[in-house]
Design a protein around this nucleic acid. Structure first.
Lengths: 204, 204
DNA sequence: CGGTAATTTCAGAAATTCCTGAAATCCGAG
DNA sequence: CTCGGATTTCAGGAATTTCTGAAATTACCG
């Protein structure tokens, strides 16, 4: 590996973390390298920087493409493929979440639903179904929330997070806030909420 | 493996998912089994149900204990160790999040901070530091939000999630809502927010 | 068409992770 | 202290995952 020490630490740590989250270490390293590079890189650049075999880099890039994590660029008058990451880290996070949902969460939900449809032949099985239903409910709520939030642009998403704290305090102070907007007609919501709406909804 | 088919599918799927998220397959299976069992199980029960070696089960349970994911029970007049999972799935999720934060997220933040402290010797390194700073910012915001939310009891956490959707609409309609409470003195915040506070803060 | 450079494929080697059985340790009871 | 059941440890074998080099494929160019 032939990199400035500062970049090398990042690449190595990122690879390490990747492998703890089920992502192949070298794929993580490739991503980290692309992430911190000012210009798009071609496969050969990556081979030189990380000291991997050409074929390994090829497989890694293909993996990253399959995850939509990488942007493919063509320079004019150059047949090589160049790659970068998106500029916006929030966008990267969204993509990662989306892909993992598609590959792992959604299939899990349908497996759980299938299990819940099966007839239980014993108390043991009935109990298990109860537990599985709880888990299904949890995942379902989380994904519903996620579906809601994922479309937000970066800036709004960041805002929502920093707001999270304050909403928390509201909830602690006053349970009824959760009825916010729940019984108001669709048309009114689409017209845009205002501070008055908030106060009104809370007061219901 | 010697289990009712319904439970077996769950255990197998859970093990499979575990392994995709960096958790050893059999550890995942052990957890799944404990999760759906109405009574605490001892190591020998697990050996029989899953067909693993006794030592493997021992290592798996120790791993789960290290992650705080398992509840240790002692029955009177029985020297064996029995294990269950917490009843509340949200609590399980919290524990999982907490442990992963401790082991992976926090160390990552400090590695990134360290990298950001180093003097950059080239433009390349300076650029990389900029990117790393963005990533640090992202993780930092997420963990701040998480620290805020993690203390919520189960019911409130569920409420917050279902609220997420509606807050989103507020944000879309009206940016200014994000100033909510931002410039109010600490004492006022600790006294607990009220609707009037919200309206006042927004009006600033 | 060849020629050439880039990329991909894939069988097997290398590395890593996981699992096991045998032995060691622990611990309460007698 | 000794016995016996429960649990843990750990070296090495098994299984899985990752990586590589050689060969194949692709695609552009003259």
């Amino acid at each position: 590996m032939n990199l400035p020490p500062l970049i090398q630490s990042f690449v190595l740590h990122f690879g390490e973390m990747g492998s703890r989250w089920g992502i192949n270490r070298t794929v993580g390293q490739i991503y980290a390298l692309l992430y911190v590079s000012p210009e798009p890189l071609c496969a050969e650049d990556i081979v030189e920087a990380l000291g991997l075999s050409r074929s390994n880099v090829s497989m890694g890039l293909r993996e990253l493409q399959a995850w939509n994590l990488v942007v493919h660029k063509h320079l004019p008058d150059d047949r090589r493929d160049f790659f970068t990451t998106p500029d916006d880290v929030w966008q990267i996070l969204r993509t990662l979440a989306e892909e993992r949902k598609k590959r792992e969460v959604d299939p899990t939900l349908s497996v759980l639903r299938e299990i819940l449809m099966q007839p239980a032949g014993s108390d043991e099985e009935r109990f298990a179904q109860g537990r599985i239903a709880e888990m299904h409910g949890l995942i379902d709520q989380l994904t519903t929330w996620y579906d809601d939030v994922k479309r937000l642009e970066t800036e709004r998403l960041a805002n929502l997070l920093s707001l999270g704290a304050k909403i928390t305090r509201l909830l602690e102070a006053k349970d009824r806030v959760v009825t916010l907007g729940r019984r108001r007609p669709k048309a009114a919501r689409e017209a845009g909420d205002t501070r008055a709406d908030v106060a009104q909804a809370e007061g219901e």
